[in-house]
Design a protein around this nucleic acid. Sequence first.
DNA 1: ATGAAAGCGCTAACAA
DNA 2: TTGTTAGCGCTTTCAT
Lengths: 334, 334
Amino acid sequence: MPVTIKDVAKLAGVSPSTVSRVIANHPKISQATKTKVYEAMKKLNYHPNVIARSLANRKTYTLGLILPNADEDLFENPFFIQVMRGISSYAQKKGYYIMYSYCKTEEQELKTIHHFINSKWVDGIILTTTRFKDKCVADLIKINHPFVVIGRPEENHKKVLWVDNDNVSAMYHVVHTLIMKGFKKIGFIGGEHEFTVIRDRLEGYKKALEDHGLPYYPHLVKEGNPTEKQSYHAACDILKKDKPDAIVCTDDIVAFGVLNAIDEQVDKRIAVVGFNNTPMSAYKTPSLSTVDINAETLGRYASKLLIHQLESQETESSNYIVGTKYIERESTLL
Amino acid sequence: MPVTIKDVAKLAGVSPSTVSRVIANHPKISQATKTKVYEAMKKLNYHPNVIARSLANRKTYTLGLILPNADEDLFENPFFIQVMRGISSYAQKKGYYIMYSYCKTEEQELKTIHHFINSKWVDGIILTTTRFKDKCVADLIKINHPFVVIGRPEENHKKVLWVDNDNVSAMYHVVHTLIMKGFKKIGFIGGEHEFTVIRDRLEGYKKALEDHGLPYYPHLVKEGNPTEKQSYHAACDILKKDKPDAIVCTDDIVAFGVLNAIDEQVDKRIAVVGFNNTPMSAYKTPSLSTVDINAETLGRYASKLLIHQLESQETESSNYIVGTKYIERESTLL
DNA sequence: ATGAAAGCGCTAACAA
DNA sequence: TTGTTAGCGCTTTCAT
């Protein structure tokens, strides 16, 4: 038989509601009764039942985390685990718990989100990637349920909570740096165009070329499935037609595929830059120049924004931009 | 105002309990009322409130996942994310959700476990690593709460649900294979001795040496913090005193540190084997021979065992041994 | 500052 | 086969 609030009340010689008030740290409660109640709780080893509290409160103190389950490759990307740790570190501090769910497709994401919300499982939702016209974002806006998204949503910037890197300027900086070092013909290989992060990085790439008066060659730009294999083929395609002196990529895994393709060339002097600063990027030979996007910070701010909204606290803004850092390694030192 | 079971009952012209029975797929319910109720649910867009159901049922359909948060290095180890995916894939199929929590220390693990249980958040607990005399395991046994552990607990084999690789024979096989290839003086560098997985792999190492009539040299064996840096130093220590022709490691990250140390040697002809088949192991130059431990399968079986126990289904046994596979790559081809 | 009582939404024993 | 009723454990008006 579990010990309930009633047992505590009885032992402390007060009413259940008083015990409840003590737990909730209600202001108008005398120090004397507080002490009595705390003692009774200790003596009985009482612990509030979260489920009962949730039912009465209509608040579960749980956040639902939607994780994509794309390719193996993509998945083992430490990005997600870093994000999860960031989310958890803030949430835990605030007494929130995280429920996660892997979703294979956008359809399944929608289904999971609706289930989380309809069944009243969670107070808020965290999305970890943003598509161009994201149905999840659209739905969440429509049903007006609290959520935050990692990655800038294409529409409704103001209404939506989001955290992201400034991917345009991050990639701009990479390309700019390469150009300053004397690279002139720079290719771009990226993931699916439907994700805003890819679009942004492509935009930064284009902008940098433009600002430096360099032409944009469509045949040097490839987007697609960001696996090592696909990226290898993408690089081969480019190298068959032309010979860039550098290739920037939207992910380290993409860069690895590109490096493999370059390795088969006679002239291997092509600089490569990845993105995300995965552990692998440092281990590879040659080590890979890449961009650290501070994934853990992205996660931490995501839960921060969401929890603040749930507790209707004032926030400076509805979004955060997390800084990035270009890390130069051997793959750009030719 | 949320739509409840009462609204459905009213519209369908039945009692709330009948609706409840329809939801639970109770056998003794006429097809006619079933249809009526389903229609009413559709019409009202009704979704059961899990929290209320949990309170009435004393069952949350939620599993608590305890994740260690050791070193950055360790953490970005894809092992955990693979395990998580495995857990989730089975749980989701069975209608269970997963709540995760990162714990920095064993103390915090204990605290989190007790909180999960005391507050009635979860039906069962999943532990992702096992220490030698694991306090979490001991506590969970003491309070007799359902749980499963990934890694074989040192004590109470029979009473506890667990899944693990056969780490003794996995490492035995590695060392055996090396010996068969002509390696004679084989070192061992591993993680903390407090973890059973490390103990087991060490045991397999010793056994293989013994079975092949090779001596066990304590100065060729190091255990400690399994970071790249620490492992580098451990390897340096060994190489200062002696010159093994192979070193087996309990983790790929350890092996990377060892490779760095070897790289500084004049004679680099020392074979290295890692463990866990991380993506990095294939990318490294030279690529690293390693052992695939099927982390996702470990996770899947863990949730399977736990959920079966929660639903008091018969299980063939209280534990699973998940197969391993030695993957030979360049680091052992000298 | 504290207590009584109703209710959060669902389930289950007991009746019918 | 279905309805009635009494909880599950906690919160929260409304009194006092």
